[in-house]
Design a protein around this nucleic acid. Structure first.
Lengths: 185, 185
DNA sequence: AGAAAGGGAGAACGTGCGTTCTCCACGCTG
DNA sequence: CAGCGTGGAGAACGCACGTTCTCCCTTTCT
């Protein structure tokens, strides 16, 4: 097995375990068991667990935003594209094993002790926020709307995680629709 | 020192440390050091750390909702009372040592491993949600509005915690005001 | 074929921490 | 004053886990 695929398999296992069970409750030995990558190899690829955590969050960030953007591309009308964000949230919430937002959860777990994790969470949320800024600007709507949509999306993620329901996505979508209409006046 | 005050001091220390540094990174010995309650006593009062955590979340739940309700009582107009929720959030976000919502953080830390913590988080959020239901009903507004306000509040808490800014409270307030106006039509 | 380098399995090491135990000082009862 | 029980300080215990080490096998190069 070459290094690149070992790295991928390690990250696959890290993603499944860290997201599903929390970071602190997953040991490096669990990663080895789930990935088939030996401890020696793991520590060659990631000199410490913290770096594996960082790589996990970074890879997931790219993937998550990519999936969102891909779904939004399916619509052409600027206002439809904004609402498509909430439609995508709903399908995400409904996925097997959904357990809330990985970054919000990571912040709760490690925000107080790891400055690097905090920085990654801030970067991820900042990027999502900027993405919304872009959608709002493309629709010719006032910039303040983006912040409100962002809060709705964050609230929906957190609530869907805690309650295990997809309903928050639809509630957020409806609120977003009303705010959009209000902003368009 | 009698048992009741020892219990209070232990909970005071637990609240400060658990909230400020996360639950898992605080040891029972840290609680002892901060509270002045001996380990023997601590384990008499709380047979295991998990029970101390539960007591911490429970006491904070009562306190948090009490403080919110007290602030809302300051307004009489039903719609003002709804907006007062967001004003209170802003003052909470601005407090020294604010580090996000204790329940959202606890869910991120322990939601995957402790069913009891998950249940407490769900109960707390459910109670907050019901409180909003009541305010909305008192204002004669449609029930669906409460869910939207709830999402805005949750989004504001999470975002204020991650970014360390109080601005999300004002953004959420403004969005709430627009939704209120839309619902009143 | 033989040597050397790399990798896997898993033991070993060190530390942190939840929990319990030991020992001692202090106050109360006969 | 002797004895006894309560509580405090902190050592001790057991375990989990991050990290490293040992040992052996395989592969490759000459």
């Amino acid at each position: 097995m070459d290094s690149a695929t070992a790295r991928e398999q390690a990250l696959d296992a890290a993603e499944e375990l860290f997201y599903g069970r929390g970071i602190q409750s997953v040991g490096m030995d669990d990663i080895r068991g789930a990935s088939g990558v030996s401890l020696k190899r793991l520590y060659q690829l990631f000199p410490a667990k913290e770096q594996l955590v960082e790589a996990y969050l970074e890879r997931r960030d790219v993937l998550w935003r990519g999936r969102l953007a891909e779904h939004v591309e399916g619509s052409t009308d600027p206002e439809e594209r904004i609402l498509a964000v909430f439609d995508w949230l709903e399908s995400w919430f409904g996925e097997d094993g959904f357990r809330g937002c990985a970054w919000i959860n990571s912040y709760g777990e490690l925000g107080a002790t790891s400055a690097r994790v905090t920085a990654q969470v801030q970067a991820h949320k900042g990027a999502f926020r900027q993405y919304l800024d872009g959608l709002v600007a493309d629709a010719g709507l006032p910039g303040a709307l983006a912040g409100q949509l962002f809060l709705l999306a964050e609230g929906a993620m957190v609530t869907a995680g805690i309650t295990g329901s997809t309903a928050p996505a639809r509630e957020a979508r409806e609120a977003a629709r009303l705010l959009l209409r209000a902003a368009a006046l």
